[in-house]
Design a protein around this nucleic acid. Structure first.
Lengths: 187, 187
DNA sequence: CCCTGCATTTAACATATGATAAATAATCAA
DNA sequence: TTGATTATTTATCATATGTTAAATGCAGGG
């Protein structure tokens, strides 16, 4: 849990009582490469933190596997469109390397919000930051060619290209795998 | 302010004291069509609520005007990538119809978070919902043709096409105005 | 009411990306 | 190591969207 609380601390200082309360509703999972941490069709009731490994959120659009995002060590991963609405998610979380992941039980966490103002504040800040990332990502998608998007990824998150199969990267960039391969070929 | 508090109430019940505190840091502006409510290059320190009218957030990418989003009556508008980071925004807010808008002073609001837990909770929920909208929008962009995106907009937000000049709609959809016109031509 | 300046459409051509198929390359289990 | 499976690249052709230019339509100010 050390890693998790160090991550939290960057957003918000917590009282020891608050940390304990979070620890009590959290469990550590080890999960093998390529397995789904959360399946399609179930409501998201867990917020995950990645200690070790790498995961993606994906869904199917007309039988085509589309990656919505990649998530690395020391980051939070959750299907927020389900977590914050209570609706079942059409998305799944898949682990792309053998991973160690902390799951925080969301309903219990939301109850802690009443008791610990600093916990509510912590997660407010975490999701505000994630919101900002998402807004910035739209800007990246909206008016760039596939090649520009590839180069931006190469520059901003080279780890994705080192650790993730290209077939998953292509849909993340909004193109086919064949196009991605062509773009890489040009250099 | 009635409209504003009715909107808030849909997310979170507030105490009368909390409502008063918000009212005290809020001011009503009337602003003429086509004027910028907030210019490019300044840090966002105000959260706006639209009582009447219609606005967009836009920016320039290599001299091309790009619309990031449209915002109608009874909604919140803010340049969150500046509001939540304190960095200057490369984006502006422009009013597209004569408008009446409530501005909430952000720094004062954030101070109220300490005093009124329910205000912090209110805005946590508001921005969680906005975050979900943004995540869903990425899904809409990622793997649809321009024609599909146009039809989706026609279906989900026909008001945009009725009230907004098409030149602004095109960049919102991630295409040129000529392409949009062609797509509309086919029906 | 008529200009004048924008907004929108139409047309012709250029290009990036998609689709399909086939060839290599890499991975993994036996 | 071998063979089977999966991932990636390469090639060809089709098509959607971009680019530029011109034509048409529309709105606001005098």
């Amino acid at each position: 849990m050390v890693q998790l609380f160090a991550y939290f601390h960057r957003f918000q200082k917590l009282s020891p009582e608050a940390e304990n309360a979070i620890a009590e509703i959290s469990t550590v999972h080890t999960i093998k490469k390529n397995l789904d941490l959360q399946p399609i069709g179930h409501t998201c009731r867990t917020i995950y933190f990645i200690n070790k490994g790498l995961a993606r959120i994906y869904y199917f659009k007309e039988d085509i596997d589309i990656t919505e995002g990649f998530y690395f060590e020391n980051s939070i991963i959750a299907r927020v469109e389900s977590l914050f609405t209570g609706k079942p998610s059409r998305k799944a979380i898949q682990v792309l390397e053998d991973a160690e992941i902390i799951g925080i039980h969301a309903n219990s966490l939301f109850k802690l919000y009443d008791q610990f103002h600093d916990i509510e504040r912590l997660f407010r800040k975490i999701f505000e930051a994630a919101y900002v990332d998402t807004v910035n990502r739209i800007e990246g998608i909206q008016f760039h060619t596939a090649e520009e998007r590839y180069k931006a990824l190469l520059h901003e998150a080279p780890d994705v290209l080192k650790r993730v199969p290209l077939k998953y990267v292509a849909s993340y960039l909004g193109i086919t795998q064949v196009s991605l391969s062509r773009i890489r070929g040009i250099h």
